[in-house]
Design a protein around this nucleic acid. Sequence first.
DNA 1: CGGACAACCTGGTTGC
DNA 2: TGCAACCAGGTTGTCC
Length: 286
Amino acid sequence: MPELPEVETIRLNLHEHLVGDRILKVTLRRADIVCGDPEDFLAAVGGKRVVGTDRRGKAMWLCLEGDIAVAVHLRMSGRLLLVQSSDELPPHTHMLAELSGGRRLIYVDPRRFGRLELLHLGRFDQSVILRNIGPDALSEDLSAQYLQEAAGAHSVGIKQFLLDQSHLAGIGNIYASEILHRVGLHPATPANRVTTEEMQRIIDATREILEAAIGARGTTLGDSQYQTGLGQSGGYQQCLRVYGKAEENCPVPGCDGVIRRSKIAQRSTYFCPVCQARGRGRRAGR
DNA sequence: CGGACAACCTGGTTGC
DNA sequence: TGCAACCAGGTTGTCC
């Protein structure tokens, strides 16, 4: 499902192919996917030129002329696609924007968890989609000290902490398992017992994995509908080391562990019980 | 306040 | 074969 690398891939597609185009007309086939007044949304967006794109965590937005923007959160099954106007609309197309040049930007979302929202520059803090979103997982100035302070009051497992978008934005269920495996931390390690040094390794592994995933255009799993903004599948599913690999051998050289799947905080969690043994970090500190 | 959990929604899979 | 039950996942809202 769309996490940071998938959203960033779509944003890059739209940045390359959409900036400079004018939105001629917008149609909402389901008004309830828009936060706020749908009439305001339609009136503000129609006729505007796209001047840029941006993203924080799993949220992205298209900057339009007139100091407004359209924010998008894909949640579970949302897709933002650039298609030809002559193409047949896929099922569950809830919004279509006619563009100059005979193309359309469409929003498709079978489960309808995702949302679109009209933003006003300088008033992003009032946005439903953007409020409560912490620093982006790829931001340059992210520090181990910050993460450790943020974790200070939290006794939940480190995996659940990483999924909390108010502390660190962009990591979802798939990449959380991959990151913790790379670091060698058990997903249930209490967040407030993770050392500064381990937090730094989490930051490094996050950058390494998310950037590689962006390079591969994201992860498209068998049961996932994820597509890039141009309708392609991602390629990072071939690089996953633990997610969806229950009962397979741990890919770490020399490790004889077998990947286990368990439910942590109601979510499927994959890890190697050998190289991510509980208490490993504390023992290493002696 | 933190933390647990239901709710949102649909398509796909599993179980009977 | 048919149909019900269950599951997946990101986030918000409610309750303790």
